[in-house]
Computed example of a mutant assay.
Amino acid sequence: MIPAVVAVAVGGLLAIALFVPYVARQYRRRGELGIGNAALALAGLVYSLALVAYVLLPMPELRPDFCAVHGTSGPQWTPFGFLDDMQKEAIGTGVAATLRNPALTQVLLNVALFVPLGMFVRYMFRRGVLATTAIGAGVSLLIEVTQGTGIWFLYPCAYRLFDVDDLIANGLGALLGALAAPVLRAVPGQRLDTDPGEPRPVTRSRRLLAMICDLMAFQFLGAIFVTLGNVLLLVVHGELIMGTTAPAELAGYAEVNAAAPLVPWFLLAVVVPLAGKAPSLGQRIVRLQAVRSDGRPAGPGMRLLRSLLGVGGYVLLTQLGALPGLGVLSTLSLILGLASLIALFTTAGHRGLSYVLTGLRLTDSRAVDRVEVLS
């Protein structure tokens, strides 16, 4: 269970970190997100991490008697050697007893382990059956060599067996997965009804997706700048190499952690609206654009104002509200966030609070691009 739990946990964290660039890629490539495609991408990510975890975990403690306790008897080079193991571990006669044989169970699990790989590689990467099977065999060989070398000589000896039967079983699993790959077409939310370059309606879900991308971008960049600020603080105090002091114990820690998130806020809430056609990074990602009531693109000043009345203002109030004596700003940020969310569901065209206050409206950026080309 340990590899499975680690794969799900790490996969979830990676999915959060990669969410914004993934949405941006999908909108550029497909013209929309596609829930089915996102679900398959997440499943493929978790499965890939599960394979890695299966190879590495659990890692035994490295002790002086490691090889005596954990060392294997050496590689198993005899094809179909599991048949002899089945005879040794037979627990009865008949079909039911054969299926319960531990040696056979191990082979069947190795086959099943690589079926998803074959399905994902053939379906998502558009590879043929032979190429997919070869890729599966190559991945299996990499796994077996990693195990046979004690994780590439990290350990003094191998603690898992290099088994040629595993190569055969994994390759068979990849082949079966490649043959079964068309089943993934049944996952809903993958089909494109219109050309990627065609404008789409401004829907509630699309607006929410833009807001989520904005908030995640603020949080992710904020965490990066806080980390860089703490590292810089350690360098300035000469504690990075010595490692005797935690950043929180150094002078200037509170100031660095308060000021660092303001840098990405300025980039996302001020620079992006002034430099681009969209009032926010999230709206740019989902290909939304702010226009005036007459259909003309909004100017930089109006885009900036919309940003400060929307997610940009919400994030700024939240960050400042965390400072001593400014707790009232956290309350204001909560009020602004709730009002914006309610307005998103109740205003015409899902304009939201910031668009109503600025007199702007939202449209698909592809529609604006077409009008500019025609004019």
Rank of each mutant, 00 (worst) to 15 (best):
L332K: 11
P199N: 15
N37L: 03
R29P: 03
V95R: 12
D364R: 12
P116W: 09
S48T: 12
P58C: 08
L353F: 00
L184M: 07
T146M: 12
Q319V: 06
R191C: 03
V356K: 04
L40W: 10
A169M: 13
L316I: 07
A251E: 10
G301E: 01
G313M: 10
A210K: 10
Q147H: 10
A134E: 05
D84N: 13
V272E: 05
M124H: 06
L42G: 03
L42F: 13
Y123N: 15
G325D: 03
D85N: 14
L304S: 04
G313D: 07
L51F: 09
A50T: 09
L326S: 11
L104K: 08
A90R: 12
L309C: 08
I143K: 07
G118F: 10
E89A: 15
S354E: 10
L274T: 04
L332G: 00
Q147N: 06
M119H: 09
D165Q: 06
L274H: 04
A367E: 01
T133E: 11
A7H: 06
P79Y: 07
V235M: 08
L33W: 15
A322I: 09
L374R: 15
R25C: 07
V8M: 13
P196K: 12
P247W: 05
G299F: 07
V373S: 13
L336S: 00
A134H: 05
A275V: 15
L45C: 02
L14E: 06
A7C: 04
A278V: 08
G94Y: 02
V271F: 08
V111T: 03
P182F: 11
D294H: 01
G12I: 06
A39L: 15
Q106V: 15
I224D: 02
V356W: 07
L167V: 05
Q190R: 15
A96R: 10
P116F: 09
G11D: 03
L316E: 02
G299Y: 11
L117Q: 06
A278P: 00
G74A: 08
S365P: 00
Q26L: 02
Q190A: 13
S205A: 12
A50I: 09
Y314D: 00
W152E: 07
L309R: 11
Q26Y: 01
T133I: 12
L57C: 10
G299E: 11
L332N: 05
A43D: 03
L117V: 13
L221V: 08
V328H: 14
A339N: 12
T331Q: 13
A260M: 07
S340E: 11
P21L: 03
A217E: 07
L56N: 04
G295V: 05
T93W: 14
Y355F: 12
L141P: 00
D65S: 09
D84K: 15
C213S: 15
D294L: 07
F19Y: 15
W152N: 03
L161K: 12
Y159V: 04
V356D: 01
A180R: 13
S205V: 06
L357S: 04
V121N: 00
Q283V: 02
E239F: 01
W265C: 09
A169T: 12
A186G: 04
L192G: 08
G31F: 00
A9E: 13
E372L: 14
A180Q: 00
V263N: 00
D195M: 07
M124D: 03
E144D: 11
L234G: 02
R126P: 02
Y123E: 14
Q147M: 01
G312E: 01
Q76G: 06
I16S: 12
